[in-house]
């Protein structure tokens, strides 16, 4: 590899890693005023304060984690099952247009359209409402994602199991699920991210009562509290980074 390529790769890597490193740096900083080049304070004070006095940060973190895991599990599971019915349906194209609907509108506009029903059903301002709202975005994504799986070959596998004496359930559990394992994990990861970083819809349906980590980040930024905002960002960014690593290490490498 030539030196120019190495240098270019170094700067590319630096460009990617800099925002993460800067966020971490900012979260340990304090009393950093213009035109000072370095902060007046650098230490664990912000983190200690947040962990002791602002204990709802931990609650927000675990709420986000719980909501995202639930949305990812429900979205991937039901999406996988429904995608099969849609893939083999005579009106497949029409159903898929409907599945693209939340993305054509954008999730926040969808939430605004459905807000009336959330208010009427008493789901507005509850975590169940937020889960349902995010599910309405994650589910169609999952349905579209799995269309590639239900192809001619998959159908032949399923028919083969039937002629070998198996039931549809046996075909599903013993053949289709193992065949789709890699795709299911990737879809779970993607729907987790959709939910984890979702802000507009969550803020609208949660009406400030459901404070996920993303909502918290925007709250601190609005308050101009950059240091706490940076801590919230660190908490927001690292779980997906770990998931991305696990996905690359255990799923993607096996699929390729």
């Amino acid at each position: 590899m030539s030196n120019i390529k190495r240098l270019a790769l170094f700067f590319l890597g630096l460009g990617i890693l800099f925002p993460f490193a800067y966020l971490a740096f900012l979260s340990f900083s304090g009393a950093w005023f213009f035109p000072e080049v370095l902060p007046g304070y650098f230490g664990l004070k912000n983190w200690k304060e947040i962990l002791s006095t602002e204990s709802d940060m931990g609650f927000s973190f675990f709420s986000s984690l719980g909501i995202s895991l639930l949305v990812a599990t429900l979205g991937t599971g039901t999406g996988f099952i429904w995608s099969k019915s849609i893939a083999y349906h005579a009106q497949k194209e029409s159903w898929l247009v409907l599945a693209y609907f939340p993305y054509m509108l954008s999730p926040v506009v969808l939430a605004a359209c459905l807000n009336f029903f959330f208010l009427k059903s008493g789901l507005s301002g509850t975590w169940q409402g937020v889960v349902l709202g995010q599910y309405l975005v994650a589910f169609p994504y999952s349905v579209i994602f799995f269309q590639a799986f239900w192809n001619h070959r998959t159908r032949q596998f399923e028919q083969l199991v039937l002629t070998l004496g198996g039931s549809s359930n046996q075909a599903f559990v013993q053949v289709l699920l193992p065949l789709a394992k890699g795709m299911i994990l990737v879809c779970f990861f993607q729907t987790f991210l959709i939910s984890w970083f979702e802000y507009g819809l969550t803020a609208l349906i949660g009406v400030g009562k459901v404070q996920t980590l993303t909502v918290k980040v925007f709250l601190y930024i609005k308050e101009a509290n950059f240091y706490y905002g940076a801590i919230a960002c660190c908490l927001l960014v690292w779980p997906p980074v770990i998931l991305l690593y696990l996905n690359k290490r255990f799923v993607y490498n096996r699929l390729v």
């Binding site: 032949q156 596998f157 028919q159 083969l160 002629t163 198996g166």
Partner: peptide
């Protein structure tokens, strides 16, 4: 009768071995 009840096995041109 369902395919499973018929006890008739259909073999495709492709071997269709289960990769897992």
């Amino acid at each position: 009768k369902t395919p499973a009840e018929r006890k008739i096995v259909y073999l495709y041109q492709e071997d269709l071995l289960f990769p897992h």
